[in-house]
């Protein structure tokens, strides 16, 4: 085991453990907070894989924006403090079977496929902003631009969906 692996394994354990807590905890807000932990640990994994820019973007977008949005949504949908009894649907057993099946299949396949493969991290410049930026704007310009259009569309869509003075009237008042 190399040093990187020594750090990676506990980080991965944290990520996995907290993600398991995300899907099993019976407190909504804690699920979001565990998600923060899991995503932070994953950002650490990215750092270990020399993907520095990706790691910080991960923290900035996921932790700073996505999770805040999720928390916002949780609060707007009147999440209770403490335990909720009905966070799991009746589908648990089937879901567990499918998830275990997925895990078994995927792990079997990837272990079989990459047993001997090893990453040479080199000087660690592979994930620097310069390298990624160069790749992004040299080879991935068209997808990048398309993505900007997508984001614009999402922006417009979200505005249309949430503004009540646009589109069809809501049937009943409901939330504030």
């Amino acid at each position: 085991m190399t040093g990187a692996e020594l750090v990676f394994v506990p980080l991965g354990a944290v990520a996995l453990g907290s993600s398991v807590l995300v899907v099993t905890t019976d407190q909504l807000v804690r699920a979001a907070l565990w998600l923060v932990v899991a995503l932070g640990a994953l950002a650490g994994c990215f750092l270990l894989l020399a993907a520095e820019l990706v790691a910080w973007v991960q923290v900035l977008i996921y932790v700073g924006a996505v999770v805040v949005l999720l928390l916002f949504g949780i609060m707007l949908t009147r999440a209770p403090i403490g335990r909720s009894v009905d966070l799991d649907s009746g589908n648990r057993v089937a879901a567990l079977v499918v998830a275990l099946g997925t895990a078994g299949t995927l792990v079997t396949v990837v272990v079989g496929g990459f047993r001997t493969a090893s990453i040479d991290l080199g000087d660690g410049s592979a994930g620097s902003a310069g390298t990624v930026g160069a790749g992004l704007f040299r080879y991935w310009v068209l997808p990048f631009e398309l993505l900007s259009v997508l984001l614009l569309a999402a922006l417009v869509g979200a505005i249309v969906l949430s503004r009540r003075d646009i589109g069809p009237r809501a049937r009943d008042g409901g939330e504030d």
Binding site: A15, L16, S19, V20, V22, V23, L42, D86, L87, D88, S89, N91, R92, A94, A95, L96, V98, A99, L100, T102, A103, L106, V107, V110
Partner: peptide, 15 residues
């Protein structure tokens, strides 16, 4: 792979 499976479980089991 394990994270993905956990996500699958969450999508299928959470209300």
């Amino acid at each position: 792979a394990l994270l993905f499976s956990v996500g699958v479980y969450g999508v299928l089991a959470r209300r």
